[in-house]
């Protein structure tokens, strides 16, 4: 009990003194349904089965209505202190970055930039919260109305953290652009109200993240190996219980080769008042496992603010 009270007290003091948790990035992305139903799609053959994926670049280059809605939403979110990452600009940046990376070399030896296949894979447009957007201008007789769906998805937990959906008032006089603008104005306050609740929940109960423990191949130990009469997996679970906010975490799955923790609540700030993300938080477990009696080396792999993997056995 004393530990819980002191943890809460330290967190509150830290928030009041420093108060700058890591700010999530937000990006509006047209939904798969929106892109594919309008023909903004790419198809490829995956060993005989046809896979259809949304083509965001084509959607943003050709769909003025989509751009209008994203622009309106960006203005509202910037006003609330969350300037949105622009998907179109992000895609352009990635293309330029790839070209520059392939051309760049050192002056003395002509050496290129080191990049593993994983590094290349990680160069994609991403954000911490995705505003998944669908809309459609529909007709009832001579009148038009806009059906609108906006889902705020946490990129790591895949949870829908905020949403707003509905249909506007039918109108025979208003232009489509006016109806689209009206749809954004009609739903954004509701959406932001829910987003606010999500942030308040994170500050009160901790940021929810996903942690995976994995093993490199051909190690002389696994998660069932015993240290001080307890299996390694038990030691890891005990560490999670001791360090998650109010001991909140859920062991989603576990074998001798991997453990998957979901709904892990980590503090927004550490005892020094510094912002914490999943990678920074799990680094303490990495250090714990490196010590006696485990003496286990591990590789820390980051997947954004809210997901980290600890791969045991080697760096």
């Amino acid at each position: 009990m004393r530990k819980i009270i002191s943890t809460i007290a330290i967190t509150l003091v830290a928030i009041s003194l420093f108060g700058q948790a890591k700010k999530p990035t937000i990006m509006v992305v047209p939904s798969d349904q929106y892109c594919i139903s309008r023909g903004y799609a790419m198809e490829y053959d995956n060993m005989g089965s046809k896979i259809t994926l949304p083509d965001y670049k084509a959607a943003l280059q050709n769909d003025l209505e989509l751009k209008l809605i994203i622009s309106k939403m960006s203005g509202i979110m910037a006003d609330r202190g969350f300037p949105l990452k622009d998907l179109e600009q992000e895609l352009k940046n990635l293309a330029t970055q790839s070209a520059e990376m392939s051309m760049l070399e050192s002056k003395s030896s002509g050496s290129g930039i080191a990049e593993s296949p994983i590094d290349a894979l990680k160069r994609t447009a991403k954000s911490d919260i995705i505003m998944d957007l669908s809309f459609e201008v529909k007709k009832v007789g001579p009148k038009k109305y806009v059906s609108f769906i906006l889902n705020g998805l946490d990129a790591y937990t895949s949870k829908n953290v905020a949403s707003a959906a509905g249909a506007g008032q039918p109108s025979s006089a208003a232009q489509t652009e006016i109806l689209l603008e009206e749809a954004v104005l009609a739903y954004m306050d509701e959406f932001n109200g829910r987003l606010m609740s999500f942030f308040e929940d994170a500050f009160e109960k901790g940021r929810e993240v996903k942690i995976r423990i994995k093993m490199f191949q051909n190690m002389d130990f696994d998660l069932e190996s015993e240290y001080n009469d307890d299996e390694l997996s038990e030691h890891i679970e005990n560490w999670m219980a001791d360090h998650a906010v109010n001991g909140r975490y859920n062991t989603q799955d576990a074998t001798e080769n991997f453990m998957q923790f979901e709904q892990v609540r980590i503090p927004m700030l550490n005892e020094k008042g510094r912002a914490v993300d999943a990678r920074g938080w799990i680094r303490d477990l990495q250090k714990y496992l490196k010590d006696d009696p485990f003496m286990i080396e591990s590789k820390l792999y980051m997947r954004g603010l809210g997901e980290a993997w600890l791969i045991l056995g080697e760096k």
Binding site: G19, Q20, K22, K23, D79, R80, G81, F82, M196, E200
Partner: peptide, 22 residues
């Protein structure tokens, strides 16, 4: 004027900003 009202209350410290704490 809902936006102006919200900003006034935020600046007066009566309500939290959406990005407060970040």
């Amino acid at each position: 004027n809902f936006v102006a009202l919200r900003k006034y209350l935020e600046e007066s410290g009566v309500i939290r900003k959406l990005d407060s704490g970040f």
